[in-house]
Amino acid sequence: MLDDFMVRAALAGLGVALAAAPLGCFVVWRRMAYFGDATSHAAILGVALALALELPVTGGVLAVALAMALALTALTGRGVSSDALLGVFAHAALALGLVAVSLVPGLRVDLMGYLVGDILAVSRGDLGLIWAGAAIVTALMAWRWSPLLSATLSPDLAQAAGVNPRREQLVLTLALAVTVAVAIKVVGALLIAALLIIPAAAARPLTRTPEAMACVAMLIGAGAALGGLLVSFALDTPTGPTIVSLAAAVFCITQSLRARA
């Protein structure tokens, strides 16, 4: 069954979508959209470094995404951060990454594959990596769900209840880096943040509790991944962007539902 590239693509998309949805809820609740952008754009720099040093690409992406996320956390923690600063990081990381890739000698990479993903080329090995990463992220989210939610609501309130908000922030940072590392093959560095944010935002009008929002976001994300795969196959469009477009369409529908209610 795994010999069929469509089956592998479907499983890869599902894995990433399911892991990204609950994490994406926190990205939305904590207003970390730009933060997610900066972290995922840093992935291109990770690709360049990994190729230059002849290391596994996933490892390079994970390391650079983690470094970027930690640096941003340190900056925002000290109150230096602003919308503009995060914007600078997000775009500078992308630009630097593209420059770095072009500087690697004797290398001809399919850059588009890293920018918008290449889900149809997912190998068995990739699939194993994607599901391992997705399992780690999902387990982290399930394990730290309540403390994370408390820290998101109010760091002081969490502190008084014995939850360390800084530790929870670190959990989130780690989960974000792992997600970026495994999602780059599926939707590419440009659209990883979209896969985090859009299903969560689309789920919001339909739900009354945080848990329900995460579950509905998982459904929407999974639906968009599978639907996007089929649509892109039928129309011969790039798969990653098609998945994100479908999720965006669902977002428009649920928003208009709320407007009518």
Binding site: W29, R30, L153, L157, R204, P210
Partner: peptide
């Protein structure tokens, strides 16, 4: 005070 983000549904 406690600002609850509009994106966070919470009973």
């Amino acid at each position: 005070s406690l600002a609850i983000d509009a994106t966070l549904p919470l009973t």
